[in-house]
Design a protein around this nucleic acid. Sequence first.
DNA 1: TGCCAGGCCGAAA
DNA 2: TTTCGGCATGGC
Length: 277
Amino acid sequence: MEQILRNDTIRIDTNETISLKHIFECGQCFRWKPSPKGGYVGVAFGQATRLWQQEDGLYLLATPQQVKEIWHPYLDLDRDYTALTQAFCTGEFMEKAVAYGRGLRILQQEPWEALVSFLVSQCNNIPRICSILDTFCKLFGQPLELEGDVLYAFPTPQRVAMLSLEDLAPLRAGYRAKYILSAAQAVAREQLDFEGLRGMNTPEARQGIMELQGVGRKVADCFLLFGLGKMDAFPVDTWMKKAGAHYAPDLASFGPYAGLAQQYIFYYARGTKLKMD
DNA sequence: TGCCAGGCCGAAA
DNA sequence: TTTCGGCATGGC
């Protein structure tokens, strides 16, 4: 029975340090929540699950097939973060940033969800981003049952494309609502093809996504990094523009993994309320 | 109350 | 090319 299978508990062996807190709270995603049952609950690719850790590994609620097709790639488990982060430790600043976020991984999120998330993120704080996206999913997403609770899938672009700005008003997203709507319409009309962008190199894909309303360099690179898994895309944070020369290295020097390096810096700077001067 | 938040856009300099 | 005001909202 599907019901029983869905509640299978699977253990995943990982030979690297993994921190669910750093993965889900580093600012790359906004929909995973700590669970009173332990670990975090969330939804990806239309599947709800709970993830938690014990001494002998990572546990989650899923079928073996779902682990293989969804959760293993979503958690980017085939990449050697230990080796990558070691390569980032090029100085005292990066050593601290990497140590602070130890166990962080870049989730391979759905492009559409990442795009909407970072459209909403602009000039906004993380608690409110979470609030807006929660409302968005509750109003327009498919309800999913998990351990007696109801979670919501991310609304499809096809569904959103049929909505009006008035429908989106309850989100209290302000001027960002029109960006969500026009992005959904572009996907629904097949003017925007995520898999096409995935097949391009980063500068080409960046140029492509920046044709959307409300997508500048920052939102574009967040989308490329978190939605398309392009690890050489690096969102240039306001903080980094100001203080980068003071604290942080030139991101471009990290080459194919500049985006990952950037995320360690972002998380460290935010967590320690790092100031310039 | 005022400042700030994973910015973007169009106009002006 | 860089700079600047406006845009919506609410957390702190």
